[in-house]
Structure formats: C-alpha cells, structure tokens
Amino acid sequence: MSRHVSAAQLCLAGFIALSVAMGIGRFAFTPILPMMQRDFGLDLVLAGWLASANYLGYLAGALTSAALPWKAPAQLVAALALVAATTLLMGWTTAWPVWLALRCLAGLASAWALVSTATLCMARLAALGQGRLSGLVFTGVGASIALVGLLCMMLDIAMAGSSATWLIMGVLALAGMLGTRPLWGASSQPAAQAAAAHAPDGQAPGAGRRHATIIGAYGLFGFGYILPATFLPAQAKQLIDDPAVFGLAWPLFGLAAAVSTLLTARLLAVLPRRRLWALAQFIMAVGVLLPVLRPGIASIALAALCVGGTFMVVTLLGLQEAHAVGGRHAQKLIAALTAAFALGQLAGPAVFSLGNAWLGLSLESSLALAATALLAGSALLWRPAGR
C-alpha cells in the first residue's frame, strides 16, 4: 500500500535529486578541475574537451528522455544510479578515453534526472495545490554547488588528490539517491495525472511561435553561461595560486544560485515571468563580461555572483514557462528546452577549444561571444509573448 507523500517530502526529494544530478553529475568537475590540473597536468583545452563530452551526453539525454520506455520514477532512479557509478569510476582510472566516456555518460544521466525530476515535482506539487514550492526543489542545484565546492576546497587544501575527491563524490551520490525515494512512489501519481488531463493542450494560436522563442532563448542561455560556469575556478587560480582563495569562486557561485532561486517567487509578484527571465539573462551577460573588461580576482568574484545568481533563476523560469505554456505536452517542451540548452552548452567549450587550438582564440574572446549570445536571448524574451 502506498503512503501519502506530502509537499515537503516531494520538495526535499526533488532537492536531493537535483543536488546529485547537477551538483555532482554535472558541476563537480568544475571545482575538481584545478586538482586534476595539478595531479595530471591537465590544461584548459583538454578540460574543454572533457566538458564538451559531458555536454554531448547531456544533449543525448535531453533528446532521448521523452522517448524512454520507462516511466519518470524509474527513469530518475536509473539516472541517479548512473551518475553515482560514473562519478566513482572517475576516481578509479586515469585513462583519458575512459574519462571522456564517463563524463559523457554522466551528462546523459544528468539530463534524464533533470527532466524526470522537473516533471514529477511540478506535476505532483501542482496536484497538491503547492505549485509555488517548485522553487525550493531547484535550490538543490545551487546549494549542492556551494557544498561540493567547499568540500573540494577543503580536500584540495588537505592535498587529498582529484582521484580521492571523485570517489568521495560518488559515495555522496549513492547516499543521496536513497533520499529521493518519495519520488519513486506512485501515491501522488493519480492526482498528478488528473491535473494533467485537465491541462490545456498547449496548441493555442501562436503557441508554436511562443514555444520557438523560449526554446531559442534557452539555447542561447546554455551557450552563454557555460564558459564561466566551467572555467571560473581555473581563471581564479591563474591569478591567485592559493586554494583557500581561488577555491571560494565556485562555492560563491553556488550560494548565489541557491539564494536567488529562493527569491524568485517574490520577484514574480513584481515582474512577469518572461520579463524576469530576460532581466536575469542580461545580468548574467554583465557578469560574463566583467573578467574580460577588468581582469582581477574582484571581477571574478562579481562574475560568480552575477552568473551564479541568475543561472538557476533562468533555469527555473524557463522550465516553469514550459510547464505553463506546454499544457498536456509540457514534458516534451521541457525536454526540447533541455535539448536546446544542451546544444548551446556543447557549443561553448567546443568553440573555445577549437578556437584556441586553430585560431589562438583566448578565453576572454570566447567570454565576450558568450555575453553576446545572452544579450540576444534577453532581447528575444523582452518582446511581448506571441511576437
């Protein structure tokens, strides 16, 4: 007999699921990167290819999530188990081709986990009349980034090594998976299915144009944010070779993400969702440009606040918009946004790595291009819906 799952339990389980999928499966690589550079002489170009492998897997996961034969709860369990396994294996090998494969699989699993968690939590919270609490679920990403970043900083100071750090992250991912159990049950599924049955079909006049606009803006967001999200600690390390200082860039990023996600509900009482999304992307563009215009540790700290303080706001608002305008096709629209995001973030490190290798393109030039993409997405969203 299935037991009733409360809104608080759903929020906590979703929080943990996104912490494992994103904070570890996607973003643990960023604070571990300086340790891998020290341990294995990994340069930024090779790091860019490892990042691109993860983003390629994320794209594959986004494209396949809606077509998987498993229901969302089973998809979530499989995704989190794969995140834990690939993270553990990163600490058991130093083979470059294996690293590439593992980062690709971790990206695949992260996308499955994001789509399934967003679908389950938004539908079930809406069925309980608590849809406004979905923001609490998404604070898991920022909070886990901050906590993982602090843990990596402490392990780096202790000279634990990157391999040991990957193993510790894998154990944490396994433990976290057990905390997502409330999302595996079916106790709130009938109510969620009933709510979905009464949802609009998402095919009103002009819907296709609105869908294309948010998909395009979300894809530009993926391209624009990924370079600072990948290389902030490495940029800080180039300026100050002290893990107690440069290691704070990533926790600061995560803390800003968690706090801003909590504030989003209040901001939505003042601004329409699309306008708030556009404003968040504009602030992110400013943050991306700061280290280019005024290189220095202060600029990197401000960039961490600007980018970290908006990237989960944009993620939350984008998925909420897809859930609102997608109607009965919300899961497919969420998957489409995730795929567009994955394409954008795949292109970012690839542009840097190829541009650096073939044209001598600097990271600063790539960041300027990323900021331009963010501004273009902001302009798309600022137009009235339907245009």
Rank of each mutant, 00 (worst) to 15 (best):
135 G>W: 07
337 L>T: 11
294 R>V: 15
65 S>K: 08
218 Y>H: 04
368 A>S: 11
159 M>T: 14
104 C>Q: 10
70 W>Q: 15
317 L>V: 08
86 T>L: 02
155 L>T: 07
170 G>E: 08
36 M>I: 13
327 G>R: 05
33 L>M: 12
213 T>H: 02
292 V>Y: 01
62 A>D: 07
264 T>K: 00
238 Q>M: 14
95 A>K: 13
315 T>S: 11
372 T>R: 04
51 A>C: 05
167 L>N: 14
89 L>G: 03
158 A>P: 06
157 I>T: 15
384 P>W: 09
387 R>N: 15
270 V>S: 13
315 T>K: 03
14 G>K: 10
237 K>H: 13
236 A>C: 00
9 Q>Y: 05
289 L>C: 08
384 P>A: 15
230 T>S: 00
127 A>T: 09
292 V>M: 03
196 A>P: 04
148 V>E: 02
219 G>R: 01
202 G>A: 00
156 D>T: 11
254 G>M: 04
111 A>Y: 02
362 S>H: 01
259 V>S: 10
201 D>Q: 10
76 L>M: 05
42 L>D: 08
289 L>S: 11
352 F>Y: 05
103 R>H: 03
249 A>W: 07
367 L>W: 01
112 W>I: 04
82 L>E: 10
11 C>F: 01
115 V>M: 13
256 A>S: 06
29 F>A: 01
196 A>S: 11
31 P>C: 01
19 S>L: 02
327 G>T: 06
203 Q>A: 13
267 L>S: 03
188 S>I: 10
93 T>C: 04
128 L>K: 14
93 T>E: 05
120 L>C: 04
118 A>M: 15
136 L>H: 14
381 L>E: 13
176 G>S: 08
30 T>Q: 07
156 D>C: 06
117 T>W: 05
260 S>R: 09
72 A>G: 13
205 P>L: 08
35 M>V: 14
24 I>Y: 01
26 R>Y: 05
181 R>W: 12
284 M>D: 12
189 Q>A: 08
239 L>E: 11
350 A>T: 15
320 Q>M: 13
105 L>C: 10
231 F>G: 00
345 Q>H: 04
54 N>E: 03
63 L>E: 04
258 A>S: 11
209 R>D: 04
148 V>L: 00
39 D>Q: 00
227 L>W: 02
9 Q>V: 08
11 C>S: 14
246 F>Y: 15
243 P>C: 09
377 G>H: 10
305 L>S: 03
312 M>G: 06
194 A>K: 14
1 M>F: 06
226 I>F: 00
351 V>C: 08
281 Q>Y: 02
118 A>W: 13
319 L>C: 08
34 P>K: 10
231 F>D: 06
115 V>K: 10
212 A>S: 11
258 A>M: 14
128 L>P: 14
168 I>W: 09
144 S>T: 02
174 L>N: 09
170 G>R: 00
66 A>R: 15
84 A>Y: 03
179 G>F: 04
276 L>Y: 00
238 Q>K: 15
289 L>M: 12
289 L>W: 07
349 P>Q: 01
83 V>Q: 10
243 P>I: 01
358 W>V: 10
291 P>K: 06
46 L>R: 15
218 Y>Q: 03
309 G>R: 03
118 A>D: 15
277 W>A: 06
18 L>A: 00
329 H>P: 08
130 Q>W: 07
117 T>R: 06
288 V>G: 06
307 V>Y: 03
352 F>R: 01
355 G>F: 00
99 W>C: 09
204 A>Y: 12
9 Q>W: 02
226 I>T: 07
